Amino acid sequence: MPKFTIVAGARPNFMKIAPIIHAFQRQKKAGIEVGYRLVHTGQHYDKKMSGDFFEQLSIPEPDANLGGGGGTQAEQTAAIMVAFEKELMENRPNLVIVVGDVTSTLACSIAAKKLQIDVAHVEGGIRSGDLSMPEEINRMVTDSITDHFFTTSEIANVNLRKAGVPEERIHFVGNTMIDTLMAQLPNFRKPQGEMFNHLRPGNYFVMTMHRPANVDQEHSLKAMIDAILEGIGGLSIVFPVHPRTAKNLQNLGINAANLLLCEPLGYLEFNYLVKNAKGVITDSGGVTEETSVMDVPCITLRDNTERPETTLLGTNELVGTDPKKLKPYLDKIMKGEWKHYQGIPFWDGKTADRIVDTLIKTYS
């Protein structure tokens, strides 16, 4: 019987592993002999960042929690590697499945390969070309030692071929985040709280910003927020905000009545707001995938993206980090002149089944 270990650690991972676990569960119900363990590295360890996701996405409690949160990136990587090596020595699988591009992805790939255990990378081949992003280093190192690449786009396939990866190791399957989105769409729910009561569909914006380049430089943060508030014509903008960023905003004296700051939201609540928003302003890669499939206008405050398919076939526009460039894009959204989603191949809600089918055939 083939045995697989599925790794998750940070908030973006949970949306990506949920459909894979559900696909394994379906195989077992169908009488296929397969074993899997879910290992939570503990990279994100507070309730809002991980606990809610297990409940909302129907993910079973992990078989192991490595408690690898906190510290610098190097300390976190080392703690996860040490704990995951021990986990693998006690419960050796045929293959380790890692997803995305977080610290856990890198650390667990290295630990597995040093024990001569195969690695499958879900979202392999993604590149931004920006080595100032820790995620780009995580992607490059993970892909350099991966055995099976499960890719989200033809662009990722091309990146891998250019790196010399043999065709038989590249599996173009689609996007498991979209599996989760499609499965959970009927369950989206309005967040509770007075600030959300007056929001009407198509009459507010949603913003997420977390990259240090955008939130840690107080002068540029103020300039960006001012440009956004000026461009949205008095509409409300919901900003689920990290405590550090909230403090920066407070220090800057930014206190507009239509800037609605809230704590990070659960998956169902956040995507309810996104689905019904007039537009989204973000510096996150994953949000651009969800806005595209839900056909919601999306502005990305970055100079590059590891998901160019969202700009080519989706609703995403790469605007950069200069606040002066924002106005024409916001004007387009306000006038209802934004481009629409054209459909991205295999982003159809069936990606996880394709992944699990491939793994069971390969390792049975």
Rank of each mutant, 00 (worst) to 15 (best):
N251K: 15
K3Q: 12
N203E: 15
M195L: 14
V215S: 09
T105W: 11
N175Q: 08
T208F: 01
A111V: 03
Q116D: 15
K324M: 12
H340Q: 13
G336I: 06
N94M: 01
L273M: 10
D147R: 01
L229W: 01
S292K: 07
G129D: 08
E230V: 00
V39K: 00
I254T: 02
A112M: 05
A277Y: 04
K335A: 15
S104E: 10
E306V: 07
T311A: 14
E135N: 06
T282R: 07
E230Q: 14
H148D: 05
N175G: 09
V7T: 06
T311R: 09
Q73K: 13
F4L: 12
L66A: 04
G9C: 04
M1C: 02
P60A: 08
S284I: 08
R354K: 14
V238T: 03
H219I: 13
A79E: 09
F14Y: 14
G70S: 07
P62L: 09
E194K: 13
K247T: 12
T146F: 04
V296A: 02
P264H: 11
Q250G: 08
P328I: 03
G202M: 08
R211E: 12
I237P: 01
E75I: 00
M140F: 02
I225T: 02
A163L: 13
D331T: 06
N157M: 13
V34C: 12
Q76K: 09
S364A: 13
P191M: 11
M1T: 13
I145V: 15
K327C: 07
V158N: 15
V274C: 05
L312P: 00
G100T: 12
E194M: 07
P191I: 09
E290W: 04
L318E: 10
T5A: 10
T146G: 06
P93L: 01
R189I: 10
G129R: 07
H40D: 14
D130L: 01
L235I: 00
P308C: 10
T72Y: 07
N251G: 14
G193K: 11
P345K: 07
I155N: 08
V296W: 11
L330W: 07
S132P: 07
A277W: 03
G314K: 02
L249H: 12
D331Y: 04
A8P: 01
F205H: 02
L312R: 13
N187Q: 14
E230P: 00
G193E: 11
G9N: 08
D63A: 04
L66T: 00
S109N: 06
I126A: 13
I20D: 01
A120K: 10
K28L: 13
I20V: 15
F149G: 05
M209F: 02
N276C: 04
Q192Y: 08
E317D: 13
T152G: 12
L57H: 01
L330V: 12
G320I: 04
M177D: 08
Y267N: 02
L268Y: 10
P308K: 08
